[in-house]
Write a protein that binds this DNA or RNA. Structure first.
Lengths: 342, 342
DNA sequence: AAATGAACCGAAAAGGTTTTCTGGAACGCT
DNA sequence: AGCGTTCCAGAAAACCTTTTCGGTTCATTT
């Protein structure tokens, strides 16, 4: 018997095989397996047993061909390497994987030509929708309105306001970061951040200033833009301490910068968090938990961004199209580098 | 015209539509578009123009249904979050994406049930093959021989020697690391590494000892196993320096550990690399470039592992099945933390 | 002029599933 | 007995593309 039904040798069983084994027509077999009502219980069981014995698995291609929907979506990332894409991708995969939807992964490597190529390939495979994941929060060109399936942009919003984009709320992130520092009793807060060419850097700075202004305060000096590296964090901190030795908090544009900041603070004899509180952005586990003390950081909830994008795409496929940019809140993860001023 | 051919409103164009617009039969249209020879040049051009105007894209479902091959493969990762999966995934996506193959991404989250579920779903979609990516190099259970399509295991080999697995050569990695330190004139080499429950940790230590033995030398003390963290790197270094203050090199089981090691070395007044050379494993950019001095590290060539797995799967789909565990060489990336002893 | 061959095009089938429609059987009612 | 109703199963169409095979046209050769 094992030989007769050995699935590794033969082609996968088809519904016709199941029907023949059960002694019914393919139509009846289909109805039996899909729980339709026009089948006698005894017949249904016979079909189910036959399907089991043949380890029958419906051919989704044939099903999709007929139904018009394939139960697949395309996940188009512009930069797989970037650490921001991965959590979004996980969230989306999670939201889809729970249902009966499979995800095509494509990496365009930041190349518009390659992206176009992937879109065409995905449309040829009749995906039901697309999620476009960017590697930074700056707006990106739209795929265009003539794409015949719904598209949702995640992390990097589309330039076309008619598209739907799901992004983290960078302004709000800057605001809640400062709120936390204020709650810790800090008032002389400096901001060392990354490349001003990044919208995220500018928006976080904007949010931080706005929250300070609401409290009747201001940043110590201007925000110090630079690059996203520990080295810049170290250099900027040295300059900062020369000009303003009396700061009691440094809000850093990224965890990497924060790590550099903390190193220089410690070398110069400032205690963290007793004298100076330090905060980062991104909540990058490997950095926050390895630093001494562990780093308080703002998490962008990227998995949630991915899940929200997946759900939005679901909705759009079902006909409920939205548009515009939807910003999701971030959250402060408190660790040892911030504490109330005693 | 824009309205009449607006693809966003209507269903995607079918070959029938193209044929009708070109005034030929579907068969001729198919032949014209696929470059078959039985079509007059003028007719072919008319069909191509029609396809262009309708932005026709062959339905891969119908094509796959007929051909028996779908041009899709499943990429089954056990842990998307893990940083080792991503480069492998990139390499595989790269190798496939270049051709006409699309990749289904599935994340099992280390759960065997979920993995089984994904395999069934992928088989239902009639993938032509599977790549199973592990999160660590320890052998993992096989999917079983009754899977009706070729399977290639990447990074984590299958326990079944009849399966084909592509892994990095961890023993060789340990060996080339020591070879580099020896070439730098170091002879008093200690080894601080991670969790001994990881095969990678044990194999790297094995390779290191073997290379030392070939040179008539031995490690300073036993390999110090612990956990994969900076904290362990710091603690182990403190103990090491107490017992063996005269070491001239530390080979670390990971870049994280190396970072902790370097911090303590510097704090204790040992210069890197003048007094003590330090090496890590994994070549994790964010750590190697941020440390002072930049860290020499062994790169596992994971993208290449992914590409090799993809090519092996290609071959297996075409009928050339291999089996066993194939180990790919790693490479030393030299940076500032190692230098010749002057 | 007739026959041969070449070049070209179209009808039809195949691939696997779902759905609609039709037919048949059993059963209850008048 | 005749009729209507309900329930169940099967036939056939539809989805879209590719390929095979048969048929038509036209130029060339005898």
């Amino acid at each position: 018997m094992a030989q007769a039904t050995d699935p590794s040798r033969s082609q996968p069983a088809t519904l016709t095989d199941v029907a023949r084994l059960a002694g019914v027509s393919v139509a009846t077999a289909s109805k039996a397996l899909n729980g339709r009502s026009q089948v006698r219980a005894e017949t249904r069981q016979r079909v189910i047993d036959a399907a089991e014995r043949l380890s029958f698995r419906p051919n989704q291609l044939a099903r999709g061909l007929l139904a018009g929907r394939t139960g697949t979506v395309g996940l188009l990332t512009s930069d797989l390497e970037g650490r921001f894409s991965i959590p979004i991708l996980m969230g989306a995969e999670d939201a889809f994987g729970a249902g009966a939807v499979a995800v095509f992964l494509c990496d365009a490597r930041g190349d518009a030509i390659r992206e176009q190529h992937h879109v065409r390939a995905l449309l040829g495979r009749r995906v039901d929708g697309l999620i476009v994941v960017g590697s930074r929060t700056d707006p990106r060109p739209s795929l265009g309105r003539e794409v015949p399936v719904p598209v949702v942009y995640a992390y990097a919003p589309s330039e076309d306001p008619a598209d739907l984009s799901i992004v983290p709320d960078s302004v709000g992130a800057g605001r809640i970061a400062v709120d936390h520092l204020l709650a810790c009793g800090r008032s002389k807060i400096a901001h060392i951040t990354g490349d001003p060419g990044y919208l995220a850097a500018r928006e976080r700075a904007l949010g931080a200033r706005s929250a300070l202004a609401d409290a009747g305060l201001a940043l110590v000096g201007e925000p110090r833009f630079g690059v996203w590296s520990e080295g810049w964090g170290r250099a900027a901190t040295a300059m900062l301490l020369d000009q303003h030795p009396d700061i009691d908090a440094v809000l850093c544009g990224s965890d990497q910068i924060a790590r550099g900041v903390m190193d220089v603070l410690r070398e110069r004899g400032h205690r963290v968090p007793e004298d100076v509180a330090v905060m980062g952005f991104d909540n990058w586990q490997i950095l926050t938990s390895a630093s001494r003390p562990p780093l308080t950081s703002v998490d962008m909830n990227l998995e949630q961004v991915g899940r929200a994008a997946a759900h939005a795409l679901f909705g759009a496929i079902a006909g409920a199209r939205r548009s515009g940019v939807e910003a999701l809140p971030c959250r402060v993860v408190i660790r040892g580098s911030t504490a109330p001023l005693s």
